[in-house]
């Protein structure tokens, strides 16, 4: 029971962090059709900016400023880069963001160096939040969940309750019609790209402190973000939310479990020994294959349900 509850909490908090990361990607994709390969790079920028700003201003001002600066940078990239590339089609856009990801990584190395940054959790948020049976749940994990939920709620309110939200929702599917009604759709695209990258930046502020801030951090979360977006359904925020939690929980549980095929066979009375063919495969533990599970899910999803859990567009 203790193991189950703690793993569930850890899974949900990791899932919520994934959601912070992938919601921006999903928003950008559903609206602009741009698969932003550099999305995780904005996560990295958020972490580095938060570290640097935090040195002078402290963690909490950095928590607000770093996402805003990341979003501004994203908006500039859209305005002066992507918008020009847009007329050459989605492949050109994809290649553009691919190149951008490398550019950002190399720039980070030049500015901050190769070593990881001593970006730590602030003292107020360090330590256990509560203790469940014998295991303690860290404060920062709780804070991470709080920030993610606050973000989810704000994005929801913005999209559902404001005029700009209506314009964004309509432009998701009918950009030309929206523009013919007199709305500046290119500017809306810039806002969405800026907003989406700001969300990634926010995830970076949190993720950088919780895990590690180094030049390879973008590359390490990049693929998983795509898994969330595809499994949830390209273009569906609710889908991204579900998929984030699902992947967060599956991965957390899988890492902690030592189940193997050999063990399961043994339980039903079939012995697997070193002489059994493919012995190394049989004895693989779930925890050993945990990192592969999301990608397995990605591949299966694309084969059996290409539009994802809640996706609306199959293209």
């Amino acid at each position: 029971m203790e193991f189950f509850l703690i793993s569930l909490l850890n899974g949900v908090s990791y899932g919520l962090l994934l959601f912070m990361l992938s919601s921006g990607l999903t928003l950008i994709f559903s609206m602009m059709g741009v698969l932003n390969f550099a999305h995780a790079s904005f996560y990295m920028i958020g972490a580095y900016l938060a570290y640097t700003l935090g040195l002078k201003l402290g963690f909490f001002p950095a928590l607000f400023l770093a996402p805003i600066l990341t979003g501004l940078f994203g908006a500039l990239i859209e305005r002066f880069g992507l918008r020009k590339v847009h007329r050459y089609g989605h492949v050109a856009e994809l290649l553009f963001t691919f190149g951008l990801a490398y550019l950002i990584e190399e720039s980070v190395k030049v500015i901050w160096g190769l070593a990881s940054m001593p970006y730590r959790i602030p003292a107020v948020l360090d330590g256990p939040l509560f203790t469940l049976y014998t295991t303690s749940f860290p404060k920062f994990r709780g804070f991470m969940m709080l920030v993610a939920l606050a973000m989810l709620f704000s994005v929801y309110l913005l999209l559902m309750r404001t005029r700009i939200g209506l314009v964004i929702q309509a432009a998701l599917t009918h950009p030309q019609t929206v523009e013919a009604l007199g709305h500046n759709v290119p500017r809306v695209f810039m806002l969405v790209f800026g907003g989406g990258t700001a969300l990634a930046g926010l995830a970076g502020v949190i993720g950088g402190a919780a895990f590690i801030t180094e030049p390879s951090m973008a590359a390490s979360v990049g693929p998983i973000v795509f898994v969330v977006a595809v499994v949830g359904g390209m273009g569906s925020l609710a889908g991204a939310f579900l998929a984030s939690l699902l992947i967060g929980i599956v991965q957390t549980f899988a890492i902690a479990l030592d189940w193997s095929l050999a063990g399961m066979l043994a339980a039903v009375g079939i012995g697997v020994t070193e002489s059994t063919p493919l012995y190394s495969l049989w004895k693989l533990q779930l925890s050993q294959v945990a990192p592969v599970l999301p990608y397995l899910l990605l591949v299966l999803m694309l084969i059996f349900r290409p539009k994802g859990l809640l996706g609306t567009r199959a293209d």
Binding site: R163, L166, V167, Q169, A170, T173, H174, V178
Partner: peptide, 13 residues
């Protein structure tokens, strides 16, 4: 805009 209400469609006009 199919997912928006009639009123929201008109507001967007």
């Amino acid at each position: 805009f199919p997912t928006l209400t009639v009123r929201q469609n008109l507001l967007l006009g």
